[in-house]
Design a protein around this nucleic acid. Structure first.
Lengths: 159, 159
DNA sequence: GTACAATAGTTGTATATACAAATGTATGTG
DNA sequence: CACATACATTTGTATATACAACTATTGTAC
């Protein structure tokens, strides 16, 4: 009885979820699944450091400024997902003492964000972990296949 | 002055975001960007019908049951992202009168979810819009390229 | 210089999601 | 049949995100 139920369920899965998918549908689903799969892996790695994926990314953006401050708009442009509320994301990084915020002297509407030493030190620890995760995630594909995948994804978006 | 600033900014973008990316890094970023790009498009299309992407997906899962009820666990297994709290997602669909919930007679721990006529009618309207969106999203790639992309994405995840 | 629009961020509110604990129900063991 | 355990869902709480309204500052036109 149990075995039959299991069999029915698997059959169902195949019928309901795998079959009948058009190529556009399958593509969309596969991209979603890949993205979620990768994101979950990253979050797992970042969790011990109390960083969300986007917080980690913003820290890297700030480090990329090499000591120069950067304002919120410019951060937003470089973010992976253009989420509304970079203010509050930065608030959280401030609370953790990973960044500092000062008001721009030449234009007081602007805010200048700068990574702290603690932020830099944290990146030093987390970076290799993320590198390793990225390598691990892509390890099933050869260099050529990865290049191909990137080419296809870029072509997908750009008319 | 303006032109120079713009130039500097673009140069920066190239240096900071495009260059120096390893193949694994580029792959991860491209998958994220594709996913976000597609999701935003879907959300835009679904917005007039007050449906989130996952709500729409659950409605389609329920329709796939062809009149049979399905419990929360089984819904969850078929969802795109295994988000915690299918209860509350279903609550929202109930509030919109798209689904009904009853307690399973043979196992009262379980809950049986069934799509309503209103839910089915809404799907009839939204389905072609989503189909069109999917086709539009994938229109830059040929059939062979889409097949290739799917093959690579599947290979990426499956060891 | 006053008035108006544009810019840069912030705050409020609603909804979404993650995670843990709690509730209620069913099942297996002695 | 009392007990522990497993199961299916719900609830509580914290955080994340989306969107709109708001504040403060700057630029521009007259």
């Amino acid at each position: 009885m149990y075995i039959q139920l299991l069999y029915m369920k698997e059959l169902n899965d195949i019928l309901k979820t795998k079959a009948n998918l058009s190529l556009p549908q399958a593509t969309v689903i596969n991209i979603f699944h890949s993205s979620i799969w990768i994101k979950d892996d990253f979050l797992l790695q970042l969790k011990p450091y109390d960083l969300s994926l986007e917080q980690f990314n913003v820290l890297r953006i700030l480090r990329g400024q090499k000591g120069n401050a950067i304002n919120l708009q410019d951060i937003q442009e470089r973010m992976i997902s253009k989420m509304s509320n970079t203010t509050r994301l930065v608030d959280k990084l401030i609370k953790k003492k990973f960044v500092k915020r000062t008001i721009c002297k030449t234009n007081r509407r602007k805010v200048e964000i700068l990574i702290t030493d603690l932020g830099l030190e944290t990146l030093e620890i987390v970076d290799p972990i993320i590198d390793e995760t990225e390598k691990n995630i892509t390890k099933n594909l050869t260099q050529e296949e990865l290049t191909q995948l990137n080419t296809l994804l870029i072509k997908l978006k750009n008319k």
